[in-house]
Amino acid sequence: MYDFQYHKPATIADAVKLLAADPEARPVSGGMTLLPALKHRLNKPTSLIDLSGIAELRGVRREGDAIVIGGMTTHYEVATHPQILAAIPALARMAATIGDTQVRNRGTIGGSLANNDPAADYPAAALALRATIITDRRRIPADEFFLGMFTTALEADELVTGISFPIPEKAGYAKLRNPASRYSMTGVFVAKGPHGVGVGVNGAGPCAFRQAEMEAALSANWSVDAVANVKQSPDDLNSDIHGSAAYRANLVTVMAKRAVADAG
């Protein structure tokens, strides 16, 4: 790891100020992705802005017909929070499968969204549930947030402060793990929500995406059979030693079926 300055601001405003002052600064929340990258010297930030001291970024609350989760909420907290378990149990179940226990104890929802790893779990849920990502300066619909591999709509000094999930009627999630990294090879999150049916896919492509044909099929007929006949095109999907594009395309359908079954 290269050395860097370390800052631990107490407010969002101070954090943004530090980031704005130094284009080579990086925010760190749980650090579950950033620290391994730093250890391999893949990044050389001049300073790390630790967000763990910012009380405003914590907490889970219900706002009308939505659950709002603070950016620094850990995966373990999402998996076990009574309000999330009651309102969007599929989201809690999904959080309980992220990484391993130690990743869930430190990794955060805000960090995962901002990092936008193609194989991360949350982006599929955010897309399917039509979530809104809340930053220090605006609200960004999930559809406009995830732009590409490790790329989001965030500006360089912009912080994810929370995410608002409209409470769905039902939702479900299924994934197949990569046998080595244990990240999602392909995962599908399905939801029947106040703004319609959503099907979010992670792991398969360079960026999480919505599967429109499956959404249409499920809108017409919410059933396992409805998605079973929708084939995902392998074009533009990821291909590596663990999974070809054709294999991942198959998994989109298989995981969609299982996610619908999970949703009930």
Partner: peptide, 29 residues
């Protein structure tokens, strides 16, 4: 390991298990 996977470094911070190879000392202040 150096990819935060093997768990040989697990300790508890408070009640939670964490991988001590994936947290900076300054974060644990």
């Amino acid at each position: 390991c150096d990819t935060s996977q093997c768990g040989a470094c697990v300790v508890h911070i408070g009640e939670n298990s964490v991988k001590s190879c994936t947290i900076l000392a300054v974060q644990a202040d």
